[in-house]
């Protein structure tokens, strides 16, 4: 009986064990061996180059640029998505009727393929579009949008904020629902206005939701690929060339397997350290306000 249960457990868990062995452990080991070779993915022989891949990656302006671009996106996207999703959550939470309609409607962007939305954005920003016609009529000129490094970054950030905020709002709604009403009543009796209540009760008590959203959003921002791939190809002048684009470019367009794997590893280390730092910051902020 005991043996049967033991066997049954392993048997039921076997789909995971199999897939983890084949598609996690093998690539994991393989990725380590790739790092020290120069190899074009095609020829059978590969050349051992020691740490040359690391040397090249760490001195490559493209890699440093990718890092800078990713942090640029993060600096724009994280604060915007926080404000937007808390705002949406407040609407969903406080609106008396049609709550579900608004919650579902705000969530719809999350379902969009970056490719399809990229097409729409490209169309809306194309030279002859109504938006640009309007801008030229009023200001005499229209921005070059995706061909302008400044606007390209903003447009792609905007697409990502649009996509994510409805989803993250639902996380904040769950947080809002967990706040006891009595707290607000007590604060109102003490003469606290709506803004003070929001600042002193709502925001601090949303900390767990805030933390969840922060970790999710940082993860997403560090992995941006689709939007710049279809809209700008990383340009203009590498202004939207993210880590993922650089890895894709090196490994699958220039067929440099070893170097691509090395850039991926550096990206992973940077990602890991970034998430760690941001989590520490958020946690110490929370701890000062008495959260775990």
């Amino acid at each position: 009986m005991k043996l049967r249960r033991e066997l049954g457990g392993w048997l039921l868990a076997s789909p995971y064990l199999l897939s983890a062995a084949i598609f996690f452990l093998i690539p994991l080991v393989w990725s380590l061996s790739l790092l020290f070779f120069r190899w074009n993915l095609i020829t059978p022989e590969r050349e051992f180059v020691g740490l040359a891949n690391f040397g090249e990656a760490l001195t490559s302006p493209r890699v440093w640029n990718a890092m800078l671009v990713t942090y640029k996106f993060m600096g724009i996207i994280i604060p915007s998505v926080m404000v937007a999703s808390i705002g949406l959550a407040l609407i969903i939470h406080h609106i008396p009727r049609l709550k579900e309609l608004f919650a579902v409607g705000f969530f719809l962007p999350y379902l969009a393929s970056g490719v399809a939305i990229g097409l729409v954005i490209q169309g809306i920003l194309s030279y002859g579009s109504p938006v640009n016609e309007f801008l030229r009529n009023v200001f005499g000129t229209s921005p070059r949008w995706l061909r302008d490094p400044f606007w390209a970054v903003l447009v792609i950030s905007g697409m990502i904020v649009w996509k994510l905020s409805g989803y993250y709002a639902l996380i904040f709604v769950a947080g809002l629902q967990a706040i006891p009403r009595e707290l607000y009543e007590a604060a109102a009796l003490d003469g606290a206005g709506a803004f003070t209540q929001f600042r002193r009760i709502t925001l601090p008590l949303l900390y767990p939701a805030f933390y969840t959203v922060l970790v999710l959003a940082v993860g997403i921002t560090l992995g941006i690929f689709t939007e710049p791939y279809v809209l700008t190809g990383g340009g203009p002048a590498l202004a939207t060339h993210t880590w993922q684009l650089e890895i894709y470019y090196q490994a699958f367009e220039r067929f440099r397997a070893g170097y691509g794997a090395t850039v991926a590893l550096i990206n992973a280390v940077v990602t890991f350290v970034t998430i760690l730092i941001i989590r520490r910051l958020a946690e110490s902020w929370g701890a000062r306000r008495g959260f775990k």
């Binding site: 983890a20 084949i22 996690f24 994991l28 990725s31 992995g223 890895i247 490994a251 991926a264 990206n267």
Partner: peptide, 24 residues
């Protein structure tokens, strides 16, 4: 142990595995 390993895999950055998984 399996549960712990799943957590490890969930937080392991998938991008490192892109090239080797392709090769596999």
């Amino acid at each position: 142990r399996i549960h712990d390993f799943i957590m490890f895999q969930m937080f392991y950055p998938g991008i490192i595995l892109l090239v080797p998984t392709f090769l596999l």
